[in-house]
Amino acid sequence: MTEVVRLSNVHKRFGDNHVLKGIDLSIRKGEIVAIIGQSGSGKSTALRCMDHLEIIDEGEITVCGHTFGKGISSTDLKQLRQDVGIVFQSYNLFPHLTVERNITLAPRSVRKLPAEQARKIAADVLAQVGLSDKAGCYPEQLSGGQQQRVAIARSLAMDPQLMLFDEVTSALDPQLTGEVLRVIEKLAAGGMTMVLVTHEMAFAMKLAHRVIFMHEGRIHEQGGADILRNPQTAELRQFVSNGL
């Protein structure tokens, strides 16, 4: 199968803090990978490096055909942003724009699509996340779960090859978490390649083709969902037993 993501000997430091210590990872088209681990283990940093939001200190990353290390041209970066969608814990919606305008902004400014085509895409992705009736609303009129679903729709509007999710449910209560996870399940059913940094262990077991446990800046253990039922290392056993 086609490889969508490859990290080769990736290191990342913030000052004296060596956060990623030689990460090697390959993700195939259509694969769903869940990254778990304690706070500070490097999982969110690894995700941000995949979208070049953090510049690595050593190694090489290839994502959707774009290869970069310490530098990347602005042209390549623009194309990378079209090929990769990323959704964060904070929704990052523009409060002064309606839901529809939040979604159409990038297709119109980056992809240079005409207004009518951008609105059609917005309607399609809002239907996909179950929010067709919210196009004219402002973010403050939506619940947290609805805002997060709009954030997902905004990424989908760019027709990405890869979706990255960084703890997207950690600020939500259980009911709103369920709303967002159902949208992600729907994307999975459609064959979207996804990497999820998550603390939702049951969801990771249900959805992920592969679970990666990070510990102290390294991939400590990985495998199918069964590694959460039968951890091979003391560190993962402790992590699972703590219910994190």
Rank of each mutant, 00 (worst) to 15 (best):
136 G>L: 09
175 Q>E: 15
175 Q>V: 15
146 Q>L: 10
154 R>A: 12
187 L>F: 10
142 L>K: 06
143 S>K: 13
141 Q>C: 02
140 E>H: 15
146 Q>K: 09
171 A>L: 04
177 T>S: 11
139 P>T: 05
178 G>M: 13
133 D>R: 09
145 G>H: 09
157 A>T: 00
169 T>G: 01
172 L>N: 03
173 D>L: 10
152 I>K: 06
163 M>N: 11
134 K>A: 14
172 L>G: 03
174 P>D: 09
136 G>Y: 04
147 Q>E: 13
147 Q>G: 08
158 M>E: 00
174 P>G: 07
146 Q>H: 09
142 L>E: 03
137 C>G: 09
131 L>E: 02
151 A>L: 15
152 I>E: 03
180 V>M: 07
159 D>E: 14
154 R>M: 11
152 I>A: 06
147 Q>N: 14
176 L>P: 00
159 D>M: 09
156 L>T: 02
141 Q>H: 09
186 K>I: 02
167 E>H: 08
129 V>R: 02
131 L>N: 01
136 G>M: 07
149 R>H: 08
147 Q>Y: 11
153 A>K: 01
132 S>N: 11
148 Q>N: 06
138 Y>Q: 06
149 R>W: 09
137 C>L: 14
186 K>H: 14
176 L>G: 02
139 P>G: 01
135 A>Q: 14
147 Q>K: 15
177 T>N: 05
174 P>V: 11
144 G>L: 13
187 L>T: 09
157 A>G: 02
184 I>H: 03
186 K>Y: 07
168 V>D: 00
174 P>E: 10
183 V>A: 03
146 Q>D: 07
154 R>Y: 10
140 E>F: 15
181 L>T: 00
154 R>F: 12
184 I>Y: 06
168 V>G: 00
179 E>Y: 04
174 P>R: 02
143 S>L: 11
157 A>N: 01
158 M>Y: 00
150 V>A: 08
175 Q>K: 15
177 T>F: 02
132 S>K: 12
134 K>Q: 14
152 I>Y: 04
159 D>H: 13
151 A>R: 12
159 D>C: 06
177 T>R: 13
180 V>P: 02
159 D>W: 01
159 D>T: 13
152 I>R: 06
172 L>D: 05
185 E>P: 00
159 D>I: 07
156 L>Y: 01
143 S>A: 08
185 E>V: 00
179 E>V: 10
152 I>S: 06
158 M>F: 00
155 S>L: 08
178 G>Q: 15
180 V>Q: 03
181 L>M: 05
178 G>V: 08
162 L>W: 10
146 Q>Y: 10
187 L>P: 08
160 P>W: 00
133 D>W: 05
135 A>P: 10
141 Q>R: 14
173 D>H: 10
151 A>I: 14
174 P>S: 08
148 Q>F: 04
150 V>L: 07
152 I>F: 02
154 R>W: 08
153 A>V: 06
184 I>E: 04
182 R>T: 13
150 V>R: 01
166 D>L: 12
137 C>I: 02
152 I>P: 05
164 L>H: 12
138 Y>L: 12
134 K>Y: 12
146 Q>G: 05
174 P>T: 10
149 R>Q: 09
144 G>F: 11
179 E>A: 11
140 E>V: 13
186 K>W: 03
182 R>K: 15
141 Q>I: 05
144 G>M: 11
142 L>W: 02
142 L>M: 08
164 L>I: 12
